[in-house]
Design a protein around this nucleic acid. Structure first.
Length: 540
DNA sequence: AAGCCTAGCGCC
DNA sequence: AGGGCGCTAGGCTT
C-alpha cells in the first residue's frame, strides 16, 4: 500500500494505489498522516528531508517511505543521466525552475507531479536487470532518510559543561573573542624560542615551511606525518600546537556555541550525500567528531548510550561480495584480521589490516604492497574481486555495488586523456599522464564497490535497528530508545537504562539480518561490538 | 566583501 | 603512486 504525497495549489493530495485522492490543507497534513499511518503505508514523496521534519515536530512518525529524490539519484547514475533537481518546489516556482529542465523540455512544460515521477520510477526499477535488489536499495535508502531526520530531531546528547571543562583543561580558560588561548600562546612562544630564528608564522603552512628551513629543518610541507620524522626539540611543541589549535578552531568554544543547544548536538545528516552512497553531513562536522571531544557526548540521567560498531566491516563486505570462502572462515570470529593471521596468510595482525586496507584502497607502497601477494594467494577471490573492479575503472567502465548503485562514468577530460594517449603519434608525457589518470580512476572504482556495498549493509543494519525499536503509540521519540548517531559503520542509541539489554539485542540481531538482506545466504558473519556507556569516549 | 583554491587535519 | 568526506585558515582573485 502506497500513498503518494503531492503538493497542489490548494493543499496536499494524498493518493493511494486505487487512485483515490484525499486533499488536505497543509496545516492539517500531520493529522491526516497520523490517521493514515495505521494502514502501514509506504509514503511516496519527493524529499524526506522536506516533508518529514514538520510531521515529526507535530509528533507524527512515519514507518516507511519512498524518497523520490534519492531514488532518482540512484536511477540517474544507472542510466548515466544527470539527476533531477528542484524537488518539492511549490507550484509557484519561477519560470525555468521546473523538473522538466533536464529532460530538455521548455519551461512551458508543467512541473512533474509526484505521481508521475513515482510511475516512472516504478517502471524504471521493473526494467532493471535486478529489480529485487534495486527495490531493496530504494527501501533502504529511504529508511535511512527517515532515520536521518529522526536523529537530527532527537539530537546527540551533549554536555556543554563537560565540553567546556575539557577545553579549559587542554587550552586554558576561554579567551576573548578572536584571541588565542593561553596554552596555544605558550606553545607558540616555545616553538619560537627553540627554533631561534625570530618570529614564527605558525598558522600559515607556506610561511612556516620557509621559517623551518631557515632554522635548518628541511621539510617540504608542515604535515604532521612529515614533521614527526624530524629530530629537533621544536617539533614536539609544534605538533602539540597543531593538534590543540585544530581542536580550538574546529571543535572549540565557538563550535559549542553554534552547535550545541539544550544539551543536544543536532547536525543535518545527508543520506546518499557521498557518491558511494555513504552519508555526508552538513554543518558541525558531525561525521568527523574527534576523539578528543567524545567525552562530552553524555547520556541523560537514567539513560545510557548504547554504542555499536561493526567489526572490520569493509573486509567482511569484500568477502561476501566475492564469495571468498577462505576469508569468510577467517572472519568467523570477532576479529577478522586475527583470523587472517591464524590462516597463515600473513605474520601479524597489523600486516593483515594494512594489507587488506591497501587491497581495498589500491595501495601500492610500503608494507601494504609487500603483503598483498600473500593475501592474494590465500584469498584469491577477494583480492581478484577488487582487482577486477580496478581494471574496469581503468578501462573507463562503470562498476556497481551489490544492490546496484552505479559509479559515475569518468569525466570527459579523463576520456579525452585516454584517447589522446592511444592515438597515433602520442608522446611519452601524454601516455604517462593517461596511465596515471587510469590508475587513479581504478582506485576509485576498486574502492567504490566495497565502500558502496558497506554503505548498503549499514543502511540495512540501521533500518533493522529502527524497526526493532519502532513504536508508534504516541510516545514521543525522545521518551524511548532512539537512534541518535551514525558514522558509516557505527550506531549510537540513546536508551533508558532499563531497556539497554533489549537495545543491545536489537543492534546485534539487526547486524546479522543485514548480512542476509544484502547478500542472501552468505557464510560471512557481521559481528558488532556493543557497549552501554555514559560517555561516548568510554565505548572503545 | 565574496568566492575560490590549497594545505592540513579530523573521521570512517 | 591510498578510497570517501567536511571544515577551517590563509591567501589569492574578482
Amino acid at each position: 500500500m502506497h500513498i503518494v504525497v503531492d503538493r497542489r495549489p490548494d493543499g496536499v493530495a494524498l493518493i493511494d494505489d486505487d487512485g483515490a485522492v484525499e486533499l488536505v490543507a497543509e496545516a492539517s497534513l500531520a493529522q491526516a498522516v497520523r490517521e493514515r499511518e495505521v494502514e502501514h503505508p509506504r509514503w511516496v514523496w519527493t524529499d524526506t528531508a522536506q516533508w518529514y521534519p514538520p510531521l515529526l515536530r507535530g509528533g507524527v512518525r512515519v514507518e516507511r517511505c519512498h524518497d523520490l529524490r534519492l531514488v532518482d539519484a540512484l536511477l540517474a547514475a544507472i542510466a548515466g543521466r544527470p539527476a533531477r533537481r528542484e524537488w518539492g518546489r511549490a507550484p509557484a516556482a519561477p519560470r525555468g525552475d521546473t523538473l522538466f529542465e533536464l529532460d530538455g523540455a521548455t519551461d512551458a512544460a508543467p512541473q512533474l507531479a509526484a505521481p508521475t515521477i513515482w510511475a516512472q520510477q516504478r517502471a524504471a526499477m521493473a526494467a532493471h536487470a535486478d529489480p529485487a535488489r534495486l527495490t531493496l536499495l530504494a527501501a533502504a535508502e529511504s529508511a535511512g532518510a527517515l532515520t536521518a531526520v529522526e536523529m537530527q530531531c532527537a539530537g546527540l546528547p551533549w554536555s556543554a559543561t563537560a565540553h567546556d571543562s575539557l577545553l579549559t583543561e587542554l587550552l586554558g580558560s576561554r579567551p576573548a573573542a578572536g584571541a588565542r588561548p593561553a596554552r596555544l600562546d605558550e606553545l607558540a612562544a616555545e616553538v619560537e624560542r627553540l627554533l631561534g630564528v625570530g618570529p614564527v608564522p605558525i598558522d600559515s603552512p607556506p610561511a612556516l615551511v620557509a621559517t623551518l628551513r631557515r632554522a635548518g629543518i628541511e621539510v617540504a610541507t608542515t604535515r604532521s606525518s612529515e614533521l614527526k620524522r624530524i629530530d629537533h626539540p621544536a617539533i614536539a611543541p609544534l605538533l602539540e600546537y597543531k593538534s590543540l589549535s585544530r581542536l580550538h578552531t574546529a571543535n572549540g568554544w565557538n563550535w559549542l556555541d553554534e552547535w550545541v543547544h539544550d544539551g543536544r548536538f543536532r547536525p543535518t545528516f545527508v543520506p546518499g550525500g557521498v557518491v558511494t552512497g555513504r552519508w555526508a553531513s552538513d554543518g558541525g562536522g558531525a561525521l568527523q567528531l574527534p576523539r578528543q571531544v567524545r567525552g562530552a557526548v553524555q547520556a541523560d540521567e537514567g539513560w545510557a548510550l548504547v554504542v555499536a560498531d561493526a567489526a572490520q566491516l569493509e573486509p567482511r563486505i569484500l568477502a561476501a561480495l566475492s564469495g571468498d570462502a577462505a576469508m569468510a572462515r577467517a572472519g568467523a570470529g570477532v576479529d577478522l584480521y586475527a583470523g587472517i593471521v591464524a590462516s597463515g596468510a600473513v605474520a601479524t595482525r597489523e600486516h593483515a589490516k594494512v594489507g587488506m586496507l591497501g587491497a581495498m584502497y589500491g595501495g601500492t607502497t610500503g608494507v601494504s604492497a609487500q603483503v598483498l601477494p600473500r593475501l592474494a594467494r590465500s584469498f584469491p577471490q577477494a583480492i581478484g574481486f577488487v582487482e577486477a573492479a580496478a581494471r574496469a575503472g581503468e578501462r573507463g567502465e562503470r562498476v556497481s555495488t551489490r544492490l546496484g548503485r552505479t559509479s559515475p562514468a569518468p569525466s570527459r577530460s579523463w576520456r579525452e586523456g585516454q584517447e589522446l594517449a592511444s592515438s597515433e603519434g602520442s608522446g611519452e608525457a601524454e601516455g604517462r599522464a593517461a596511465r596515471s589518470a587510469a590508475r587513479s580512476w581504478g582506485r576509485f572504482t576498486r574502492n567504490f564497490v566495497v565502500q558502496g556495498t558497506a554503505a548498503e549493509w549499514a543502511l540495512a543494519w540501521m533500518a533493522g535497528v529502527r524497526r526493532r525499536l519502532w513504536t508508534n503509540d504516541g510516545t514521543p521519540l525522545e521518551a524511548q530508545p532512539h537512534l541518535v548517531f551514525f558514522v558509516h559503520d557505527e550506531l549510537i542509541v540513546h536508551s533508558p537504562l532499563h531497556r539497554v539489554d533489549e537495545v543491545q539485542q536489537a543492534l546485534t540481531a539487526a547486524a546479522a539480518d543485514a548480512g542476509r538482506v544484502v547478500f542472501g545466504d552468505t557464510p560471512v558473519s557481521f559481528p558488532v561490538t556493543v557497549a552501554a556507556v555514559q560517555r561516548y569516549s568510554d565505548a572503545k
